[in-house]
Nucleic acid binder design. Structure first.
Lengths: 332, 332
DNA sequence: ATGAAAGCGCTAACAA
DNA sequence: TTGTTAGCGCTTTCAT
């Protein structure tokens, strides 16, 4: 079959324990014997079997990543952040898309435990008690990325969604907009709830009326942005600005409005959310709320490595900063 | 520690072999004992250890996926196709981004072999002899997805890039365009070479001159599309149509040209490549060559499963069909 | 600094 | 139909 540690030991005239020490960088090996062993490894083209190692050491150096949809730009960018840091710390990634389906999420988590992952990064719409229970019962650390657990029991990395939307609405109100449409993400996640609350509270704060007609339930697609534009432009009391829960929907809104002859930003201001690469791939370029996706992924993975090494973490509910980047879909 | 097959055996008053048979769906088990065992599994919340199973059976039911960049829409879509089929056949995916770097690709491949993956799907710019050698020396099947190996030694799934570009150029020439700019992908892969050849050959075929000034070396980004538009519009003999090697660059070209006051498609026709979701997220909507990314991923994975099960495959160099979808960035 | 030996949790002959 | 018994290839005490 394939070359094993035993073959190397024989060739180098040492015991397999010594070979094991060499491949694991254990310092208790005389330099000369280390050389011998290395030579044997070279010669035999020995490649350690990670599965056997995993069984013996009870560590697989692999982490599970559960993601709603890898073909979604937003999550793909997060995944890239996760991966880069994982690579840096020598972890491998087992990646699965859940389509935000509860049972599938739970199943995937279970499968990953069977594979003996050392930890998992979870991304999803909402965290139920079932999730928390599953995470707690397992004895591997779990970190939520761009996903909030309202009970605050699971370590997580996010931005402050409520205040992010608040900032965007403030911005608009200051510019004189009184009627601002909001295109939400239909998935009823606690993140979306925070956003909607932020949106409504800001109007109340400014003593402005909150018109429920001004909230359109989108589904995070470009198409639903287009529909939203049509919906809003059909209203008797049209909004003068539209805020969306994602950049992709914002592009839809811009094009939907433009198709109707509405001038952006003169007749309608648009603000997106996320600052994906899409935001500069449109005319006018999109003003948007920056959510540092790559960083969220990277920080999540970094946090997980700390948890894996039992380093102490001062804060396991990380909130990364957000900001608004002004481009041409809003005036001035 | 955790519950093992042995604990279950004791609880159910059977041998571990029987438990093993039950969890592996072996039919040689009396229904009543199967029930007993199932009950014990339930009660103890037994979860089989995939690592131990992998060591004993020499199969891990996981496949490695080497991808240039998961945050690139094109590859993310491929990955989704791969993943869906992998899930269907109960394989897990170990995913790593290579950034198209040869050494990293080779390293990743090696790491995956250490992890004892059952097979790997490889995506990358170009396949060198080193790649082929590494693939052949391993004893796991490898399938290339949207990646061509000119030596045809490695199973692969692609479209016919040469003829895809040819079709696009024909289309343009038929519409009367004599000067057609081409924005290439700088990465010197054999796919890009096929495309450039297809582009040039078509002009020769029509007895039209091939002007090397009409080829702009892009780098697959939106920005390079913008630059390409500026470059072309600055030429004395401006092209009346531009073909790009990817949709993202096509969007750049459209916007770059529009920023310069050029009307699309009246003064300049634009054709993209891939038919990513981007192609409808622009005005005018983009005419493009359809490359079925999801399908390429799915078919690659399906092919790999066949290879893994030693089913015979009639053809291991799969060419999927392509077509042109006409939208509004070209006339009529 | 090195070796011997006992597992890690499971599969897969081979018996019975 | 069920049980016994070797391993799978490595890590990790415990000796020496």
């Amino acid at each position: 079959m394939s070359v094993t540690i035993y073959d190397v030991a024989k060739k180098a005239n040492v015991s397999m324990a010594t070979v094991s020490r060499v491949i694991n960088g254990n310092t208790n090996v005389k330099p000369t014997t280390r050389k011998k062993v290395m030579a044997a490894i070279e010669e035999l083209e020995f490649r350690p079997n990670a599965v056997a190692r995993g069984l013996a050491s009870r560590k697989t150096t692999s982490v599970g990543v559960i993601i709603p949809d890898i073909s979604n730009m937003f999550f793909a960018e997060l995944a890239r952040g996760i991966e880069d840091i994982a690579t840096m710390y020598n972890y491998h990634i087992i990646l699965s898309s859940s389509d935000q389906n509860l049972n599938r999420e739970l199943d995937l988590f279970d499968n990953m435990l069977e594979k003996q992952v050392d930890g998992v990064i979870f991304m999803g719409g909402s965290i139920s008690e079932e999730h928390v229970k599953a995470f707690n019962q397992s004895n591997v650390p779990v970190v939520l990325a761009a996903t909030v657990d309202e009970s605050n029991q699971v370590p997580s990395v996010n931005i402050d969604y409520y205040s992010a939307i608040t900032d965007a609405v403030h911005e608009l109100i200051e510019k004189g907009h009184q009627k601002v449409g909001y295109v939400s993400n239909s998935i009823d996640s606690s993140i979306e709830t925070s956003k909607v609350n932020g949106y409504q509270d800001t109007f109340k704060e400014h003593k402005l009326s909150v018109d429920s007609n001004l909230i359109y339930k989108g589904d995070d697609t470009y198409q639903s942005g287009i529909k939203a534009a049509h919906y809003f432009m059909d209203l008797d009391e049209k909004p003068t600005a539209i805020l969306t829960s994602s950049d992709e929907m914002a592009l839809g809104v811009i094009h939907g409005a433009q198709d109707l002859g509405v001038k952006i930003p003169d007749e309608l201001a648009v603000i997106g959310f996320d600052n994906t690469r899409l935001s500069v791939m449109v005319r006018p370029e999109l003003t948007t709320v920056v959510q540092p996706m790559y960083d969220i992924g990277a920080v999540s993975m970094r946090l997980l490595t700390k948890l894996l090494k039992n380093e102490d973490v001062e804060e396991d509910q990380v909130i990364l900063p957000h900001r608004i980047i002004k481009r041409s879909s809003t005036k001035e």
